[in-house]
Amino acid sequence: MTGGRVAYSEVCTDDELLSWSRGYCRDVRRERGVDVRFDLVEWEVSHRAKRRAAAVKRPQLPEARVGERYDWDALDGAEGRPLPCTLSLTREAFEAFDRAEWESTLRHELVHVEQYQRDGTTDHGPAFRERAAALDTAVHCQAFADAKYVLTCATCGGLVARRYRECPLVRERERYRSDCCGATLRLE
């Protein structure tokens, strides 16, 4: 046990995963100045997720915009504070990642929680990218499961998207263009 929580290498149960992850996130808040109220964050472990390592589940709020402080006082039931959100951690991702990648995933999700609690919403836009860089984390979390469909740029071969089931992007890929070269998409 370290600071009242099980050592990372000893995490076996979902409760231990939650405890270790909560403790790490509290350390990040203290050491890196992340403005998050953990009393308004619920935690869970997902055994079903295949595409996301973790996620912040939150209500969709009217008029919420990233970069504009949300008026929590105007929302019924908020009592001047953000409504709770849920940080859902994917067990399979934890098992697939090394400690550095899991810590990066948690810092990524903390950016989402911080944006949500301040602005009432969150995205992966410029403000997110800037904050992610300050916390030394990626804008998109590493994949931990093999995608059924991998779409690449037909010109440079760069990754465009991973999809785990058939969707319009997969079915109608000839209608889309890559952001890198503006080329058609190739299914790998």
Rank of each mutant, 00 (worst) to 15 (best):
L17W: 13
L18A: 11
S19R: 08
W20G: 00
W20C: 00
W20Y: 01
R22G: 04
G23R: 03
G23F: 07
C25Q: 08
C25E: 13
D27N: 12
D27Y: 11
D27T: 11
V28M: 09
V28W: 11
V28N: 10
R29Q: 15
R29V: 15
E31Q: 15
G33K: 11
V34A: 15
V34C: 09
D35P: 06
D35I: 07
V36D: 13
V36Y: 06
R37C: 02
D39M: 08
D39V: 09
L40D: 01
V41H: 02
V41Y: 07
E42A: 13
E42P: 11
E42V: 11
W43Y: 14
E44A: 11
S46E: 12
S46L: 00
S46G: 08
R48V: 08
A49L: 14
A49W: 13
K50F: 14
R51P: 01
R51N: 10
R51E: 14
R51S: 11
A53S: 12
A53C: 10
A53I: 00
A53D: 09
A54F: 05
A54P: 04
A54N: 04
A54K: 06
V56G: 07
K57H: 14
K57A: 10
R58G: 04
R58Q: 10
R58D: 07
P59A: 03
Q60G: 13
P62W: 10
P62C: 08
E63D: 09
A64R: 07
A64M: 03
A64L: 02
R65G: 06
V66Q: 09
G67W: 00
G67T: 01
R69V: 15
R69I: 05
Y70L: 00
Y70K: 01
D71Y: 01
W72C: 02
D73L: 06
D73G: 05
A74S: 09
A74N: 07
G77W: 13
A78Q: 00
E79F: 04
G80Q: 01
R81L: 12
R81V: 02
R81M: 11
R81S: 09
P82S: 00
L83K: 14
P84W: 04
P84T: 03
T86Y: 11
L89G: 06
L89R: 06
T90Y: 01
E92D: 14
E92S: 14
